[in-house]
Amino acid sequence: MIVLIYLSAIVMIISALYAVYAKDLLVSVVALGINSLIVSVLFFLMHAPDVAITEAAIGAGLSTAIFVFAIKHTERKE
């Protein structure tokens, strides 16, 4: 159980680094989505269900949608 949490934290940091360094914006948006998804899981494990649902709905769901819309209206390559 503990190993799962440490692993998810490592994945989170990697996805954050990936989001910063990826050349293709869509890839970094997806990495951002992964990052906020894992954070909402961590919130859940820290007994904060309210925040977990909100983070999932807003962080993973809507933010990624808005980012994709923005990339649709601009350009994909950095």
Binding site: A16, A19, N35, F67
Partner: peptide, 21 residues
């Protein structure tokens, strides 16, 4: 890149939220 800066700012905000919880 403008959108990359926005992404990094969102990462910072998630980090602060994790810290607060």
């Amino acid at each position: 890149n403008v959108i990359k800066t926005i992404i990094t700012l969102t990462i910072m905000e998630t980090a602060v939220n994790l810290f607060l919880v």
